[in-house]
Design a protein around this nucleic acid. Structure first.
Lengths: 146, 146
DNA sequence: TCAATATTTAGAACAATTCTAAATCCAGTC
DNA sequence: GACTGGATTTAGAATTGTTCTAAATATTGA
């Protein structure tokens, strides 16, 4: 997962915002590419520490910020929980499992356009996000067997 | 806005969860009915203090919690900002203005059903919420005149 | 190699919220 | 009308997630 190609991409993107490619930024980004389960900053910190024991929490926040600014990572918010980070930059929405708390990407159906909902006059929409909630496949299956 | 009818409704709802109707709960609820601009707990506190100078922040949080639990009020979250409170219990979504930060209710079009988006197999959806962002009518108008 | 600038770091500061424990209030009984 | 038990309110401490600060370190380009 940490290879020349990723590095090049990363470097190019960082350069656009005048930022440098550092070991910490590479590590943080690779954590996000490795397991796309929308970890919080804390979780990224723990995972990054595995291979880079001296990395600090502040640096994790800094790196995540930088990656967001250069468009390689997106923040995901749900309720008032900690910010989660997502390296899937395709247009998509999120499903939040009520049972296990997991967050899942829901790809936007390319043929379905905007939500079937008309905004009142005067509003100018720039974007929209749909937050689905319910049971994820695993939790739904468990429930059925009870 | 603070009348016998509202009181009765309020009392009945509170009773369902074994809660009592108190002056503070009435005041907090009436703040939310009065100006439906999705105030934060802090803002509710400031407004409530106007007519009830001894009310405390902790009580405002307690009352809001109670009102949420008995189904008279909904929490609204946007990004990692403070929780906002909404006394509109009809099904609706929210529009967040990028310019002024205002939150607006967007009624669900009754004839348009779910968002035109299919969940992958196995997910069991309980509900969904759409967060629109862009410019509210006022801010859109200002932009156009520049 | 050196200077200028960017980055990392630990820890302090901060904002929103929840917790704690004591004071107060209230509904229903005696 | 006073009394009792549980609910409620309150101030302040504690917690959580995040941002800020200032010093140490790393990196780039001359």
């Amino acid at each position: 997962m940490h290879n020349e190609f990723v590095d090049e991409q990363l470097n190019e993107r960082l350069a656009r915002t005048g930022s440098r490619l550092t070991a910490q930024r590479r590590e943080v980004y690779s954590v996000l590419l490795q397991k796309r389960d929308h970890p919080s900053a804390e979780e990224v910190f723990i995972r990054a520490k595995g291979r880079m024991p001296d990395i600090s929490m502040a640096t994790v926040y800094n790196c995540l910020d930088t990656l967001v600014k250069c468009g390689l990572v997106k923040q995901v918010h749900h309720d008032r929980g900690a910010t989660r980070y997502c390296s899937n930059m395709n247009e998509h929405h999120h499903f939040y499992c009520d049972e296990c708390g997991g967050t899942y990407d829901i790809d936007t159906d390319p043929e379905a356009g905007h939500p079937a909902m008309t905004l009142p006059n005067g509003f100018r929409m720039r974007s929209f996000e749909i937050a689905f909630s319910g049971l994820c496949p695993q939790c739904a299956a468990k429930k059925r067997h009870k």
